[in-house]
Measured scan of single mutants.
Amino acid sequence: EVYKVKIKIERVLPNGEKVEEEITIEVEGMSEEELLALARELAAEPGVRIKEIEIEKLPP
């Protein structure tokens, strides 16, 4: 199964400015739980906050 994972994050820059970013990846052969863990890892940097995680199962 192939999933499209869209992660919206908010990053706080050293000057205090907040910037929103969106990361989209396609992943194959992982469960939804593994995808959530991967998304959290991607956003685990200091000053980064996850705003939204969207997981979509793509048709075969």
Rank of each mutant, 00 (worst) to 15 (best):
V2E: 04
V2R: 13
V2A: 14
Y3N: 01
Y3M: 04
Y3V: 04
K4E: 03
K4P: 00
V5T: 00
K6I: 15
K6V: 07
I7F: 15
I7Q: 00
I7E: 00
K8V: 13
K8H: 11
I9L: 10
I9M: 12
E10M: 02
R11K: 07
V12Y: 08
V12N: 07
V12Q: 13
V12I: 10
L13K: 12
L13Y: 14
P14T: 11
N15S: 11
N15K: 02
E17R: 04
E17H: 12
K18D: 02
K18G: 05
V19W: 05
E20M: 05
E20G: 04
E21T: 06
E22Y: 09
E22F: 10
I23C: 11
I23W: 09
I23H: 05
T24P: 01
T24V: 15
I25W: 11
E26C: 06
V27C: 12
V27G: 06
V27F: 15
M30Y: 07
M30V: 15
M30E: 12
S31P: 07
S31G: 09
E32K: 12
E32L: 10
E32P: 15
E33G: 05
E33A: 12
E34C: 10
E34W: 13
E34F: 13
E34Q: 11
E34T: 09
L35C: 12
L35V: 15
L35E: 00
L35R: 02
L36M: 15
L36P: 03
L36D: 07
A37C: 15
L38P: 02
A39Q: 04
A39V: 14
R40P: 02
E41N: 13
E41Q: 11
E41C: 13
E41M: 07
L42Y: 15
L42A: 11
L42D: 01
L42Q: 05
A43G: 10
A43Q: 05
A44V: 10
A44W: 14
E45G: 06
E45D: 15
E45S: 09
E45L: 10
P46S: 10
P46W: 05
G47N: 12
G47L: 02
V48I: 06
R49W: 13
I50L: 09
K51W: 08
K51L: 15
E52C: 08
E52L: 07
I53L: 03
I53V: 06
E54V: 12
E54A: 06
E54K: 10
E56K: 09
K57F: 06
K57P: 06
P59R: 12
P60M: 04
P60C: 12
